[in-house]
Amino acid sequence: ENVVSAPMPGKVLRVLVRVGDRVRVGQGLLVLEAMKMENEIPSPRDGVVKRILVKEGEIVDTGQPLIELG
């Protein structure tokens, strides 16, 4: 699984990683606000951040690609 998608609609509050960062399974990639709750979106696997597909403040839909892992 190379693309991390939004599990719910919401607003991207914070991106916690940068392109080139090594991440571990379960590590927070970004914080999504949904229904006034902050939800940290975890990495599904170990890898390297290849691309960040959203910006802070952006509104996303369920299933929208957020981050690509390499």
Rank of each mutant, 00 (worst) to 15 (best):
L13W: 09
V25Y: 11
G28W: 08
V3Y: 13
L66T: 11
V12Q: 14
V17W: 10
V25N: 11
M35R: 07
V48I: 10
E1P: 14
S5T: 00
V4D: 12
R18G: 09
Q27G: 11
L66H: 15
E1D: 01
E56G: 02
G28Q: 05
G28E: 13
S43G: 00
L53Y: 04
Q64L: 06
R14S: 01
S5W: 13
G57I: 02
G20L: 00
A34T: 11
E38K: 03
V25L: 04
K50D: 06
R51D: 02
L13C: 14
E38T: 05
V19Y: 00
N2Y: 11
D46A: 06
V15L: 04
D21Q: 09
P44S: 02
E58H: 05
I52H: 08
T62F: 01
I67K: 15
R24F: 01
V4H: 06
L30T: 00
G20H: 13
R22I: 10
L69K: 14
E33T: 04
G10E: 08
D21R: 14
L13R: 09
E1T: 14
D21I: 13
P9H: 06
L32D: 15
E68I: 08
N39K: 10
G57S: 05
V25M: 00
R18K: 07
K11D: 06
S5Q: 01
V12R: 15
V3K: 13
L29G: 00
N39C: 14
N39V: 08
A6Q: 09
R14G: 13
R14W: 01
E33G: 06
E68L: 04
V19K: 10
V31C: 15
S5A: 09
G28R: 11
I52P: 05
G28S: 00
M37H: 08
G70N: 03
V54N: 06
K36S: 08
K36V: 05
P42H: 09
Q64W: 05
V31H: 02
D21W: 14
V4E: 01
Q64M: 12
I59H: 04
R51T: 08
V49R: 15
P7T: 13
R51V: 10
K11W: 00
P65K: 14
S5K: 10
R14A: 08
G63I: 00
G47R: 13
G63R: 03
P9A: 09
G10F: 02
M37T: 04
G57W: 04
P44H: 11
V49D: 15
P7L: 03
I67D: 15
P9M: 11
E56P: 07
M37P: 02
L13P: 10
R22S: 06
